[in-house]
């Protein structure tokens, strides 16, 4: 008797015997609905399992299936299981990933009771995906992306002139979109051990340049573009951890990028409203605000660079 058989028997003890005496077989079926919008079934305790005899239904609609796994259809709310080649009573366990299992006894070839799928396992609609990834992109900047916030503030502190800010933001956006896309499509791969310290150094560079000069030099936009490429690699690292739905890859990718953009523009708008609008025309603005703030940002950037290399 293998470990799986023992587990099946423990289950039989654990969930008690059915109300009346039934011929309980050794078969046990575990179905799990995963957050990546797939389902898998594990069958143990039988050597005669015939996958073609499974009748899997989402919302009452039969799924063409002869395997013990598959995709959960969009909008699905309920699930039922039936196995027409079962002759004995067997234990069926149904579980949404991250939740406890619902267990029931199935009388031979009878259908299971309806199982309610959690929202987390059902594929979202395109609109829901767009909304979700917009939010993820935005929150990756505000409030979670302090390094990106400091970089954007660094760009903004040089000069609050709309044309200059626009030039930098456009270069930055274009660049991070390129590397984010290339990374997510697998065309490019760079280790976070290189990317993360480089992002910290980019923050330090931008801030230090603010201390050194008060004008938008021609190379500044080019450098911001290069740094944008770096930050795109960082965004991709985060997005890879979050995961992109296979069925809606492009809408999710674009939405995330737009969300990031919205986050950055919010930072700039907030900076403008909070201090630039009031003080940029003052003769002390650069000396007493831009230089100290840039120096602080530069110091933080250097500190992070050291920390990230060390870790």
């Amino acid at each position: 008797m293998g470990v799986r058989h023992v587990r099946a028997l423990i289950l039989i003890f654990a969930i008690g015997s059915p109300i009346s005496a039934h011929e309980i077989g050794t078969m046990r079926v575990d179905v799990v609905f995963h957050r990546d919008h797939t389902w898998t079934a594990t069958v143990i305790g039988t050597r005669r399992f015939v996958p073609q005899a499974i009748d899997i239904r989402f919302d009452g609609v039969k799924v063409a299936n002869d395997r013990l796994s598959g995709d959960i259809p969009p909008h699905a709310k309920t699930f039922t299981w039936r196995y027409s080649r079962a002759y004995s009573t067997y234990a069926l366990s149904l579980r949404n990933e991250g939740q406890s299992a619902a267990r029931q006894w199935i009388e031979s070839d009878a259908a299971s009771k309806t199982f309610v799928l959690s929202r987390a396992v059902v594929p979202p609609t395109r609109l829901e995906t767009i909304r979700q990834y917009l939010a993820l992109g935005f929150t990756h900047i505000l409030p979670e992306g302090l390094d990106h916030i400091l970089f954007v503030l660094g760009m903004f502190l040089l000069t609050a002139r709309v044309r200059d800010v626009l030039a930098q933001v456009t270069a930055f956006t274009l660049a991070h979109s390129i590397t984010l896309g290339l990374m997510m499509y697998g065309a490019l791969s760079v280790s976070p051990r290189i990317v993360e310290p480089a992002i910290a150094l980019s923050i330090a560079y931008i801030a230090i340049e603010n201390v050194v000069t008060a004008q938008l030099k021609p190379w500044r936009v080019a450098i911001v573009f290069c740094f944008g490429l770096l930050h795109g690699l960082g965004f991709a690292g985060v997005l890879k951890e979050l995961g992109l739905p296979r069925s809606q890859f492009l809408p999710a990718l674009v939405s995330f990028n737009v969300g990031v953009e919205a986050g950055q523009l919010t930072v700039i708008a907030a900076a403008f409203v909070l201090f630039a609008y009031w003080w940029q025309s003052k003769n002390w603005y650069r000396r007493r605000f831009v230089v100290p703030a840039s120096a602080a940002i530069g110091a933080v950037g250097l500190l992070w660079a050291v920390q990230r290399v060390a870790s």
Binding site: A21, H22, I24, R48, S88
Partner: peptide, 19 residues
């Protein structure tokens, strides 16, 4: 082994004092 099934193809049935 106890077996329940059809066409001489069956599921194993575990021992049960209830049965």
């Amino acid at each position: 082994g106890l077996r329940v099934g059809q066409d001489f193809i069956g599921d194993p049935v575990a021992r049960s004092a209830q049965l």
